[in-house]
Amino acid sequence: MTIFWIMTALVTALAGLAVLSAARRGAEAESVADRDAGALELAELDRLKARGLLDEAGWTAARAEAGRRLLAARRADRRPVAGPRDRYWVLGGIGATAAATLGLYAVFGAPGMKDQAYETRVREWASAPEALEPAQVAAVLGQVVKERPDDRLALTMLGAARFEAGDPIGAASAFRRALAIQPDDAQSWARLGESLVRANGGTVDGDAEAAFRQAVRLDPDQLGARFYLGDAALARGDRAEARAMWSPLIAVLDPSDPRRAELQTRLAEAAR
């Protein structure tokens, strides 16, 4: 905190210094009337005439107009003179500015709040992994994966974390990368499929179904994959396929489990 207030004081002091030095330069500068104005204007008219853009009569008349205006302006100009107490007004102004800034900042700003750079936060989370939310876990793992892009375990964990954190598309991407490293991981295929299903709002599309099939092919005990494949089959009206997929599932579930009853009901309904 102290460093912060020192920095703000420094910045304000610099600003005040700029104003004071400008005031001193203003006092030392001589009359800032446009020294060349008259000569330049007349020279411009001469140059236009030389280039043929102003004829003789026009040049005479234009010169007359300009000349009279310049003479009148010269008479009307008043020279600026520094006042005796200007210095105090400037100092007072600077003081008022500093006070106003501090006051406004105290009301509208958040003086104590630290910067929260992303990498710093991730490092904090990584050092205390117990009490993290899924999104934070995903962030930490994301960092790990960035440093070790071929770490298959980290990628699968990243996928699971992102799925929990409600980022199914990110989860799918992570699972895809893990499968690129080791394609015969049935569980990752199943999870990829589930991520795609959630990303699609609950419907099983072609990519998800392909993933589930891979999972079941590699490991017939992938129950989650079986469920979705059966679901997709029912949606197509393919009852035989659904039954083939769900039978082991129903067998595994406890008879008092309501989900078992639900699966059986759905299969029965499809028969009609």
Binding site: A190, R191, E194, V197, D221, Q222, L223, G224, Y228, D231
Partner: peptide, 18 residues
Amino acid sequence: RAAALFAAALLASTAAPA
């Protein structure tokens, strides 16, 4: 673990489709 994921998936699929 598979069952747990499966459970989560069931929950997701019974939610109303968008």
